[in-house]
Each structure stands twice: as structure tokens, then as C-alpha cells.
Write a protein that binds this DNA or RNA. Structure first.
Length: 289
DNA sequence: AGCCAGGGTCTGC
DNA sequence: GCAGACCATGGC
């Protein structure tokens, strides 16, 4: 358990010198799509139906306009505050490349995001780029979510999306992914895939359930397991991770299935977290590892 | 103009 | 099991 000094001042929750927590690293490592940086450096985002403004200065992280109740009930869990990342980084740093990667993205935290939102978000991520993924998700929220604030909408539940068609989704410009969204909505509402029970399943069973949905393959399923259910033992392999791993371990990574198998072998029980350090590091360096 | 983006599906061997 | 075409869309 992490000991952390927390205060509530002027309706702001302040974390003093939180170890291993950097907003830039956490929001820019490709795990989330609903956080935006303002000109003043603060981040504004929506999660679990709540809006949050969060910033950092010196050695503080400041949750603006936030009650202690919301911190303890929502945000502390969302930012995975009970996990000791120092220990994980130390273990990973025996690998020289991972040492560099963890030094670069030292403040990454694996967010515990909403399961349904993460499912749809990573269906949309297929063969897509991050700015456009964000744009499509934002317009889906504006079209079907609840208005929380000016220009701020919740992510629509599958109940709210019940009965939608591909044509209904045409304004969000999701392209070939629209039919996959519709399939996910249908299977969630019919309980063919029970999103209320998924978190209670072991990782392999949960993956098998997710794979029932058209548009979810191994990579998307792994992202959902990691970014919503906190299954840090999975190792999502996208283009960036594949290229990086093939450069780092050419003899062991001959095919995509090799890379998927090698991740856990090399990085161990929390290879999903290692994957995030690698992803951030690779992109920071434009793929030149 | 052509390539690529946090892939998946479908087809053909 | 595995390669290749194809899938919409937008930015460069």
C-alpha cells in the first residue's frame, strides 16, 4: 500500500509528491481518449460520468473542484493509486531498454477505465490514429451521451445505444467500425456478452467473452482487459509494439504471434505495464529505439 | 497520389 | 495455421 499525503483545500484535492505519477505520461500513452490538455497545462477529462480538471505544479497533483469523497470513491481507483509502480519499474529495469523506457515515461499509471467505454473505444481504434479515435468518440458522446457541462458529454451506455443502426452512426464517421459498434451494443443488451459479470471472470474467460463481439480480436481484447479490468498480465501488440519488439529481440520475434508470446516471457507478470512504458518510449522517439 | 493509422474479417491455400 | 485483400476515413 502506498502512503500518500492528501489534503482538501479550497475544494481541491491535493496529492503531495505522489510517486510515479505524471499527467503527461499517463494521458499520452495511448490508453485513453477523453483527456485533453489546455493551454495552461491542465488536463480536462470525463470518466465514470464525472468531469475532472487536474493539474500538476512542483511536486503536487491537484484535482480541481473535487471532493474527498469523489477522490476516494472514484479518482483514487481510476488512477490506480494503490499500486506500487516503483517496485514494478525496479524489476523491469534489469533490461537496459526497459530501464530507458521507464526513465522516460516514469509517471505512467494504468487507468481503471469504464469497461463499456473501453470496449467501444478500442473497437474504434482498429486501424485508426489517436486524434481521429478521439474525434469519433467525442461525437458519439455528443450524439448519444448525457450533457454534463458545456461541450461535455458522458459516454453513452449500451442501454442508451439500444436499437441503433449503422445508418444512425453515420454522423460520427466511424467507417467500417460502425457495424462493430452495433454488434457490441446488441450483444451487450441481449446479455450474449454480459458486461456486468465480465470483471468477475478470470482473464482467459473474459477474453473469450469479448471475442464474441465482431470487431474485437486479440489486440483489442487485450487492451480492454488491461485498460478497464486492470489485467496487467496481458500484452497488447499493436504496430508500434510489434516494430519495437522486433528491433529489440529480433531472434525471438519472427512473427506477430511470437511477439505476443514473448512479452510475458521477457517482462513477466506485469508485462502489460511494461508494454505501456515501451509504447510511450517508442512514440516519444518516433519509433527509433 | 499514395501511405499510414493502438486491427479484424473473410477467403483461399 | 497463415498470407493477402479488403474494409472507411482523414491527415500528411
Amino acid at each position: 500500500m502506498i502512503s500518500l499525503r492528501i489534503e482538501h483545500i479550497d475544494n481541491n484535492v491535493i496529492l503531495y509528491s505522489p510517486p510515479d505519477f505524471n499527467l503527461e505520461h499517463t494521458f499520452m500513452c495511448g490508453q485513453c481518449f477523453r483527456w485533453d490538455k489546455s493551454d495552461d497545462g491542465t488536463f480536462c477529462g470525463i470518466a465514470h460520468g464525472k468531469v475532472l480538471k487536474i493539474s500538476s505544479s512542483d511536486d503536487k497533483i491537484i484535482f480541481h473542484n473535487c471532493s474527498l469523497e469523489d477522490y476516494y470513491n472514484i479518482w483514487g481507483n481510476y488512477f490506480d493509486m494503490n499500486r506500487d509502480y516503483s517496485e514494478i519499474k525496479t524489476n523491469l529495469s534489469s533490461d537496459p531498454v526497459m530501464k530507458k523506457a521507464t526513465d522516460t515515461g516514469y509517471g505512467i499509471r494504468i487507468l481503471k477505465q469504464d469497461l463499456w467505454e473501453t470496449t467501444i473505444s478500442f473497437i474504434i481504434s482498429a486501424s485508426n490514429n489517436i486524434p481521429r479515435i478521439k474525434k469519433i468518440i467525442a461525437s458519439l458522446c455528443e450524439l448519444y451521451g448525457d450533457k454534463l457541462d458545456e461541450n461535455t458529454y458522458s459516454f453513452p451506455t449500451y442501454q442508451q445505444l439500444q436499437g441503433i443502426t449503422v445508418e444512425d452512426l453515420s454522423p460520427i464517421r466511424a467507417g467500417f467500425r460502425a457495424k462493430y459498434i452495433v454488434d457490441a451494443v446488441n450483444k451487450a443488451n441481449s446479455r450474449e456478452v454480459n458486461f456486468n459479470l465480465l470483471a468477475q471472470l478470470d482473464t482467459d474467460s473474459a477474453r473469450k467473452e469479448l471475442l464474441k463481439i465482431s470487431g474485437i480480436g486479440d489486440k483489442v481484447a487485450d487492451c480492454i482487459l488491461l485498460f478497464a479490468l486492470g489485467r496487467t498480465e496481458v500484452f497488447p501488440v499493436d504496430v508500434w509494439i510489434n516494430n519495437t519488439m522486433c528491433k529489440l529481440y529480433p531472434d525471438r520475434c519472427l512473427s506477430l504471434s511470437d511477439v505476443r508470446a514473448v512479452g510475458p516471457e521477457i517482462f513477466g507478470r506485469h508485462c502489460g505495464i511494461a508494454q505501456q512504458y515501451l509504447f510511450y518510449y517508442a512514440r516519444e522517439n518516433g519509433g527509433n529505439i
